[in-house]
Amino acid sequence: GKALGGASGGYVAAHQEIVDLLRQRARPYLFSNTLAPMIVAGTLTALDLVETAGDLRENLTRNAELFRRLMTEAGFDLLPGEHPIVPVMFGDAVLAAKVAEAMGERGVYVTAFSFPVVPRGEARIRVQLSAAHTPEQVQACVDAFVASRDAVRETTTA
């Protein structure tokens, strides 16, 4: 629903027998509307890009690997994985919010998440890398994280 439905809702792409069964049995189907034509067109275009844009996928993978390596070297705690949405763990909700605010002051938009969105004690900042980012932008983001973390530490220990 979010990835291809444009947050407008989801859909099922399946053999006709499965679609027929869901139409008869799935409660959400009874209370739903069809997707807007522009959502369907956008979905088809997105699927075409997924099939043909190998260079973009490769660049996205490189950006995620670079970000993860640089952040780990800088001493940040990341949830493991290869995904380009990278949770930078802080644990403390106030700390995560202050670092996110400091990042914004440095021109890097990130979002802090804390309870009840994530489990208590697992506050984090979520970074979303893109295939359009350059290695220099990834480095600038890491530099902003380091500077923000250090600035927040200085104000909390002073």
Results as ranks from 00 to 15, higher is better:
residue 143 D to L: 07
residue 21 L to S: 08
residue 55 D to W: 15
residue 79 L to C: 11
residue 40 V to R: 12
residue 129 L to R: 01
residue 145 F to K: 05
residue 12 V to A: 10
residue 12 V to G: 04
residue 16 Q to R: 09
residue 105 E to D: 08
residue 90 F to A: 01
residue 116 P to H: 00
residue 97 A to R: 13
residue 81 G to F: 08
residue 123 A to F: 12
residue 129 L to D: 06
residue 19 V to I: 07
residue 74 A to M: 06
residue 140 A to C: 01
residue 125 I to C: 06
residue 19 V to C: 09
residue 95 L to Y: 12
residue 23 R to T: 06
residue 58 E to L: 14
residue 94 V to M: 11
residue 47 L to S: 05
residue 153 R to H: 02
residue 71 M to Q: 05
residue 47 L to D: 05
residue 86 V to S: 03
residue 62 R to L: 02
residue 139 Q to D: 04
residue 136 E to I: 02
residue 146 V to I: 11
residue 88 V to S: 03
residue 106 R to Q: 04
residue 15 H to L: 09
residue 1 G to N: 09
residue 32 S to W: 05
residue 45 T to A: 15
residue 154 E to A: 02
residue 44 L to Y: 14
residue 4 L to V: 09
residue 158 A to K: 14
residue 146 V to A: 06
residue 28 P to G: 10
residue 89 M to N: 00
residue 5 G to V: 07
residue 101 E to F: 14
residue 120 R to V: 13
residue 141 C to E: 10
residue 80 P to V: 09
residue 80 P to Y: 14
residue 87 P to D: 02
residue 1 G to D: 07
residue 100 A to V: 05
residue 84 P to V: 12
residue 43 T to K: 08
residue 2 K to A: 15
residue 31 F to Y: 15
residue 50 V to M: 13
residue 39 I to K: 13
residue 142 V to P: 00
residue 148 S to G: 06
residue 12 V to C: 10
residue 55 D to E: 13
residue 81 G to N: 02
residue 27 R to M: 10
residue 78 L to C: 08
residue 156 T to H: 10
residue 144 A to Y: 04
residue 44 L to P: 08
residue 85 I to G: 10
residue 144 A to Q: 00
residue 111 T to S: 05
residue 145 F to H: 00
residue 40 V to E: 06
residue 98 K to M: 02
